[in-house]
Design a protein around this nucleic acid. Sequence first.
DNA 1: GCAGAATAGTTGTAGCTACAACCATGTGTG
DNA 2: CACACATGGTTGTAGCTACAACTATTCTGC
Lengths: 163, 163
Amino acid sequence: MFSVSTRWLDDAEMTAWVRLAAVLELLPGVLDSQLRRDAGLTHYEYYVMAMLSEAPKRTLRMTALAQRTNATLPRLSHVVKRLEDRGIVERFPCPEDARATNARLTAAGWKKIRATAPGHVETVRQHVVDVLTPEQIAQLADITGAILESVDPEGNLSAVYRR
Amino acid sequence: MFSVSTRWLDDAEMTAWVRLAAVLELLPGVLDSQLRRDAGLTHYEYYVMAMLSEAPKRTLRMTALAQRTNATLPRLSHVVKRLEDRGIVERFPCPEDARATNARLTAAGWKKIRATAPGHVETVRQHVVDVLTPEQIAQLADITGAILESVDPEGNLSAVYRR
DNA sequence: GCAGAATAGTTGTAGCTACAACCATGTGTG
DNA sequence: CACACATGGTTGTAGCTACAACTATTCTGC
């Protein structure tokens, strides 16, 4: 905090950081627009659906879902309520723990994400995967892995990205 | 859109993408918290100040500032109004074009960003730069450069990241 | 077996962003 | 030189997220 001298970034570091910051700023918007336009979904809503679709019985407890999607519980609660109103997910009390609520992808929700996924993957290809060489794909996995270790030390999202 | 078969991601591609998505999700929050806690600033507000501080006379037209910070004009207008209320920037009509408005960093704003920058750089070091090797820094610059070419084809942000 | 703490969720509210509507100035064309 | 159109910016509003407050179960120690 009160360090005498700041270790400023050198040219190479600055270039990498500024570009990463630009990606951080632009890429989410691109993904969001595509999903909103083609499916009427937020990127976050899509992620909620994706996490549910991969879970056993397409069901997860709210807490687990919040962790996997890196959201606070209030945020998830609001989002799930809206998805419920649209018939995409349904909520029911957890049999094992009366405090808990389960969220389950409905048949309509499952159908919707199956219809939406190809376009989303195509967008990811177009802007990320297909503009990189196989070596760069591997490098990117290592680099983001290192960043995640420092940004997510408790491994809250590790269930998602550790493969 | 109606492609017969989707080109799904293979394992290596999926790993890289999922991790990048996690970084996209987590890193902005980390940067935002540090700035909010230590300086009472949004990451976006910080970026507005940073762009102004690097401009000649610490002054930019609203449109130029919006482009450099990748914001819509309405968003910038609201943010600048709040920064103006806090004495961090000031607005005045552009002499050359009566339609335009200039935003200038005040002395207090300049002082504030100089005080804030070291902590911000330290955070960037801690979570990005210092967890990577010099080779990885170079790789990251290339990778993000390639992504930006596809995500920002008109080069709206290129004034910022092209170095 | 019961008081206190921890856990799981929901609801209310304030603040920020996107979108649309709007006003004012500048530019081009006949 | 007048009209249409483009450009630069502000304001209003709806929707989403963060934070705080609250309720309802479950666990823990004595």
